[in-house]
Design a protein around this nucleic acid. Structure first.
Ligand SMILES: [Zn+2]
Ligand SMILES: [Zn+2]
Ligand SMILES: [Zn+2]
Ligand SMILES: [Zn+2]
Lengths: 132, 132
DNA sequence: TAATTTTTGTTATAATATAACACTATGTAA
DNA sequence: TTACATAGTGTTATATTATAACAAAAATTA
């Protein structure tokens, strides 16, 4: 039931802001946006973010310290994420590639480690930025 | 010649500390360690770190905001990195897996993006931590 | 030499994230 | 219902990570 969880007021407010954005948002930019809705302190935002990441509603883009909504219900179970990031315009998209996911999910190293999660970030130039 | 570059004094000091550590180090912990060697300010450390990352001598572990020395000369060209991170003891190892690297290097999405770089972080439990 | 670029040292500050504590709401079990 | 446990809230303060701005020194180049 983890991914059908009832969200609290603050969690809903923060998720709402992130879902309405096409691009990843930073914690303090979210804080700025939600001040008119009664959230006043960083910690209130970070707590909501932590929970939303935990239940898979959003993902953290580690290299950018920012947060993006997940549109794929499968992520909420797998905690396996792949992103494409344009280094020029900072456009970020989540990649859902079944073959790639399977490959990574089943990856085994020779050190006897047991993996439960992965995060892959591709960097480059998006179509639009290549042209310019 | 990028990866045979002559390092400056500060860059050498910082690289030396990181290479002597088996585990990733954080910028301010590096700063603490190098104070006896004449480096006094965060910026001096961050500047050295930036350069060392740029030339591939070290990598940043994005999810941990820490830095680890690279032992594989190939990384210095490819900017393609894979890490395994134990979520219990925080042990980090760089993974060099030719097949995986090739797979990722040649990955193409359907959005027309041109990738020049990637970073993959696997999370789980290391052999030792599984037993305990 | 002079001009240019890179690195340095320094102070200050920005941006990102968590600790600690008292309190409130919600769920679960006598 | 009461008691207890769990999770979330609001708040203040603080820790951690990272960069801006500027003047001076060193290294590179022409
Ligand atoms: Zn997702
Ligand atoms: Zn772009
Ligand atoms: Zn490497
Ligand atoms: Zn471990």
């Amino acid at each position: 039931m983890q991914n059908q969880q009832v969200l609290t007021k603050n969690q809903k407010i923060v998720l709402d802001i992130i879902e309405k954005s096409s691009q990843p948002l930073k914690a303090y930019s979210i804080l700025f946006d939600v001040k008119k809705r009664g959230i006043n302190a960083p910690l209130q935002v970070y707590r909501a973010l932590d929970k939303l990441v935990e239940i898979g509603k959003i993902h953290k883009i580690e290299s950018r310290n920012s947060f993006i909504a997940c549109k794929n219900s499968k992520c909420q179970i797998t905690k396996a994420t792949v992103f494409s990031i344009c280094e020029n315009c900072e456009d970020v998209k989540e990649i859902h590639d079944h073959k790639l996911s399977e490959h990574l999910k089943h990856y085994k190293d020779n050190k006897g480690m047991k993996y439960s999660k992965y995060n892959l970030e591709f960097f480059g130039l998006c179509k639009r930025c290549i042209k310019n």
